[in-house]
Structures are given as structure tokens and as C-alpha cells.
């Protein structure tokens, strides 16, 4: 069986780096890995997704409808948007954070108020205030690594040295804060 992870969010939130570090970890753990993402127009504040698949041998890089084991949503509305991709037995890890799309910013549409309860009723979902925590850690951008930490706990990969992966793939100045962010996510997610 191929394991499928989807990382969804808003263009500019750092889904790509999160996905990249995950694929490196999976390779180090000895898996065949594929990852797919859509670039281009969607970078401009649109909805974005990265899909990571791992197994002894992976064929399709794309996750089927109803095929994801875990969806990590960097923004709550995006968890709802991509929910059809989750297996009924799948799990959601959600950044408890709101980013208004253009139609809401311009007061032409409303942002659904009840997302936490609506999603929790239907799915096995864990919420984490990753954006707030990142701000407290001193850099809003490390939200993505907090969520990577939470995902790593859910995956429980054997023999992966995450600190080393962060050291090897993040600019020297940002290594320490990213390690802290990873640990925060790992230790605070309530799975």
C-alpha cells in the first residue's frame, strides 16, 4: 500500500519547504518517494497543495480522491476545500488559523464561522495554533516547520534525524528557530 500525505494551504505559506523536508526524511527512512505540486498562477495567494507518496514502490505521484492518509492544512478553509481527498479512516492536522480569500476581504462573501466543529464532526482532526506559536517563537514563517513537527509525530518514522535534516536544508541563521519550531509542533499536537 502506498501512503499518501497532502499538504494544503495558501500560496506563500511555505507548504513547499515542509513537503521537501518530509520527502528527504522519507528517503532517509528507505522509502521510494514521489511528490507533486502545482506551480504557476496558484502562487499568487491562491489555494495550493503538495502531495507526497511513499511506499516500497510508488507509481502515481497524485493522490486519488478519497486516497490521502493524512491531510496537513496550513489554513482552516483549505482543510475543508481538500477534504474529499481524505480516506474515511484518514487524519487531518490543521493550523487553527484564518486567512481570508479575496471575496471575504472585500466583504462579498463570509468566511464560515463553524469550521472547527464542522470538520471535527466528520473527520479525525487535530487543531494546532501553529501561526500564533510561530509568532511567539519570533518568526511567523516557521509555522510550516511547526506543522512538520506535528506531522512527524503522526508518522512516527523510524530512524529519522529531523534535526540533521533541518540543519542540512535551512539557512544557517534560521536553523535554531526551525529546530525549536519542529519540537513545538511535535510536542504540542494532540493526535
Amino acid at each position: 500500500m502506498t501512503n499518501r500525505i497532502m499538504i494544503v494551504g495558501v500560496g506563500g505559506q511555505g507548504t513547499i519547504l515542509c513537503g521537501k523536508l518530509l520527502t528527504i526524511a522519507l528517503m532517509k527512512a528507505g522509502y521510494d518517494v514521489k511528490m507533486t505540486e502545482i506551480h504557476g498562477m496558484s502562487q499568487r495567494g491562491g489555494s495550493v497543495s503538495s502531495e507526497i507518496s511513499y511506499s516500497d514502490k510508488v507509481y502515481s505521484p497524485v493522490t486519488e480522491t478519497g486516497g490521502a492518509d493524512i491531510i496537513v492544512a496550513f489554513e482552516k478553509l483549505e482543510a475543508l476545500r481538500y477534504s474529499d481527498n481524505l480516506k474515511p479512516s484518514g487524519k487531518m492536522i490543521i493550523n487553527d488559523h484564518v486567512m481570508y480569500p479575496a471575496s471575504v476581504l472585500s466583504a462579498k462573501a463570509d468566511y464560515p464561522e463553524d469550521l472547527n466543529s464542522r470538520i471535527s464532526e466528520k473527520f479525525n482532526a487535530s487543531f494546532l495554533k501553529a501561526s500564533e506559536a510561530a509568532k511567539e517563537l519570533g518568526n511567523t514563517k516557521v509555522m510550516n516547520i511547526i506543522l512538520l513537527g506535528a506531522l512527524a509525530k503522526a508518522l512516527d518514522l523510524d530512524g529519522v534525524n529531523w534535526d540533521e535534516i533541518i540543519e542540512e536544508n535551512v539557512k544557517a541563521n534560521f536553523v535554531e528557530i526551525n529546530k525549536k519550531a519542529f519540537r513545538y509542533g511535535h510536542d504540542n499536537i494532540n493526535l
Binding site: 495567494g45 491562491g46 477534504s83 470538520i119 466528520k122
Partner: peptide, 16 residues
């Protein structure tokens, strides 16, 4: 594949 139904009727789009 089986998909869990959830209300998306009020979900605003997020175009670029």
C-alpha cells in the same frame, strides 16, 4: 473511492 461528505455550500473560492 469512499469520500466523507461535508457541507461545502458556503465555502468561498480562493483564486490567485
Amino acid at each position: 473511492n469512499e469520500v466523507t461528505a461535508i457541507d461545502k455550500s458556503d465555502m468561498p473560492a480562493r483564486p490567485p
